[in-house]
Design a protein around this nucleic acid. Structure first.
Length: 243
DNA sequence: TATAATGTTTGAAC
DNA sequence: AGTTCAAACATTAT
């Protein structure tokens, strides 16, 4: 479920429930379920990996973490964290964090940091990178304050496309390469979205989890890198290490 | 069947 | 005070 693109897909799938009235809310999330009853959903929004259900004066935030899922119409066998009931329909959310946010979303989130947003701001992202010269680019790409929505798949694929090694230090990467990374973080996210919609994502990944299948071609190395110690997949021959 | 994985927060330990 | 680490949440694909 995680990275930004599947959240955009969820938002699109939820669209038919926009302007509908919640008849009842249930689940084991620690929010006031009563507060959702008989309330009209004004909109669905997203910021990176966060999904928002917007009501008049508050918003419900859902984050799916690593294992979260959702289902329309019929419940799964396990207990939902949140279930929204409508007149003739239901939506269920599982293994996610649910929080209530008061007031305007814009006061809590900077949408120009969301790589999939219309408001995505390349110059702002580059400016933030400038302040982190000693960080590894692999770590920085996972920083949601800079690249909201980027997860480990997008990180690895964007770095491969840009030809930069994940352990490269931000301050040592040439400006043109940094620009390429920022561009690919967004471009790959939209390819991710396109491929996921037709269930063709894994076939199109060039390095992520490709250590076995690429034997005989350019070998892909897997290594836990940086402070985050997340798995990086990269080609030593095609991705330059700047340090 | 065992393992690893698209994520993040929290709090203890150093 | 800063960091580093494990734990916690719990599921699914391979």
């Amino acid at each position: 479920m995680p990275e930004g693109p599947p959240i955009v897909i969820l938002k699109e799938k939820m669209d038919y429930l926009k302007h509908k009235i919640v008849s009842e809310a249930s689940g084991y999330a620690e929010i006031d379920m009563e507060a959702l009853s008989h309330k009209k959903i004004l909109d669905f929004k997203s910021w990176g990996k966060h999904f928002f259900i917007c009501f008049n004066d508050f918003t419900i935030r859902i984050h799916f973490g690593l294992f979260g899922s959702y289902q329309f119409h019929e419940p799964k066998k396990v207990n939902p964290k949140l279930a929204l009931h409508f007149n003739n329909d239901d939506v269920y959310f599982y293994v996610c964090t649910i929080e209530r946010i008061e007031g305007a979303l814009e006061d809590h989130y900077d949408f120009s940091a969301d790589v999939m947003s219309d408001e995505w701001d390349v110059a702002k992202a580059l400016g933030k990178l400038k302040d982190l010269p000693k960080k590894q680019i692999g770590d920085v790409l996972l920083d949601q304050k800079i690249f909201s929505g980027v997860g480990n798949i997008i990180k690895n694929e964007a770095l491969y496309r840009a030809g930069v090694h994940p352990e490269s230090l931000v301050g040592k990467i040439p400006a043109a390469k940094l620009k390429a990374i920022v561009k690919e973080a967004r471009d790959f996210s939209f390819d991710f979205l396109k491929w996921r919609k037709v269930d063709q994502l894994t076939q199109n990944l060039e390095v992520y989890r490709r250590t076995e299948t690429r034997i005989g071609e350019k070998p892909v190395v897997k290594k836990d890198t940086g402070k985050s110690k997340r798995s990086s997949y990269f080609s030593v021959s095609e991705q330059k290490l700047y340090q």
